[in-house]
Design a protein around this nucleic acid. Structure first.
Lengths: 206, 206
DNA sequence: GACATTGGAGAGTAGCACTGTCCAATAATG
DNA sequence: CATTATTGGACAGTGCTACTCTCCAATGTC
């Protein structure tokens, strides 16, 4: 299949595919001559992956590049695998400023929750959580300890479900965790909206 | 307080505040002369709200405008209140294409889940869910029925917790639901990451 | 009275994700 | 074999967003 075929089967414009090639998001096809190359099924699924990550998960092309790099270079042992997966997930999203003095209360709350749940205390994730708590507070949104605990309990449920989808083969597991998590993030939020509508109908009547 | 004071207390540049004034995201201050106006605490919290929605919730300024319009014009009855809240939430996020033929299977799955859960069948939310299922499928991510059901159960937990934060006063309730949901969306995803790390450590050992 | 600040308006900028145009080399077609 | 189409490659241009800069006369401050 040549580039026009790749464009036809994926529904992505030829110019865009060339752009992805330039940006290193898509590996070059196998050259058959100086001005011709062919592309295979791997290219098709790679293009579909890029589109899903940008359109559905809302990642920037830079973030997609980070994810693809992690997927293309899986760690050998299963021990490092999930660590690599989460490194990729955290790298794909923003880093967030380290935060100033006013964020210390939020960081303390974040650490308390993590300790209570027995979660890891990855500083990147803790800082992210602290920043989000601070933003909510700055916007005048009350996030009580009880409420936060309820969200954490639900997160444990989601994570338990996530793990059941993991295959044993390392490369497939990495892909499933990283891509699966990124693509189901918006799905989780949509389900939250749906459940909210239902719950509010119950409380406030029809 | 004049505009430089507003800039100092919120940490937002004067030029940016002027831009927000021009764009209607910030109501004009009370004019004390032809070239002078003063701003109060309401302006401070409005600026903080705009920053929280853009920086933390990742909304565009257009989406922020929709949210603010909904908050500034609360419906009179409590009956319409949550409906208005969800209209604001759905309007704040993208609409998403109606989807073609290939999305029909995904839409059927979405409707099945909604029916099973007894959730509302708001076509906007159902279409969104269908589009997300289609994207996951296109990217080669398997989303089993069991897995989807687990996510839905967790969403019900989150929604139940969300409702406990709602005050009885209509304006405060609207604000809490809309802004609270938008700002805790990223928080929920961060908690998911944390719980995943912990769960994977349990399964795969240290 | 000297100097800084303000509100208002418009133009300019940076980054992102494409998209359009051009080219010589090659492939497909009659 | 001549003609037409397509390809890979490079680069400039586009549309959008979220600012940021510059300018101005009017006003405030020292």
């Amino acid at each position: 299949m040549r580039i026009s075929g790749l464009a036809a089967t994926t529904g992505v414009a030829v110019a865009t595919l060339k752009y992805y090639l330039r940006e290193g998001l898509l590996p070059p096809g196998t050259a058959t001559s100086r001005t011709q190359a062919t592309y295979d099924e791997a290219h098709v699924s790679r293009v579909r992956l890029v589109r899903a990550l940008t359109e559905s998960a809302g990642l920037s092309l830079g973030a997609v590049r980070e994810v693809l790099a992690a997927l293309d270079d899986p760690p050998p042992s299963r021990h490092d695998l999930l660590g690599a997966a989460h490194h990729a997930l955290v790298a794909a999203e923003g880093r967030g400023r380290p935060g100033g003095d006013e964020q210390d209360t939020a960081r303390r709350r974040a650490r308390e929750l993590v300790a209570e749940r027995g979660w890891c205390d990855d500083p990147l994730l803790v800082d992210r959580l602290a920043e989000q708590l601070r933003a909510a507070d700055a916007a005048g949104v009350v996030v009580s300890d009880d409420y936060l605990r309820s969200l954490a309990a639900a997160a444990d449920l989601v994570a338990a479900a996530d793990l059941t989808t993991v295959q044993l083969e390392p490369a497939a597991a990495l892909r499933q965790v990283v891509v699966g998590t990124l693509l189901t993030d918006p799905l989780v939020l949509t389900l939250r909206r749906m459940a909210q509508v239902r719950a509010s109908q119950e409380v406030f009547g029809a």
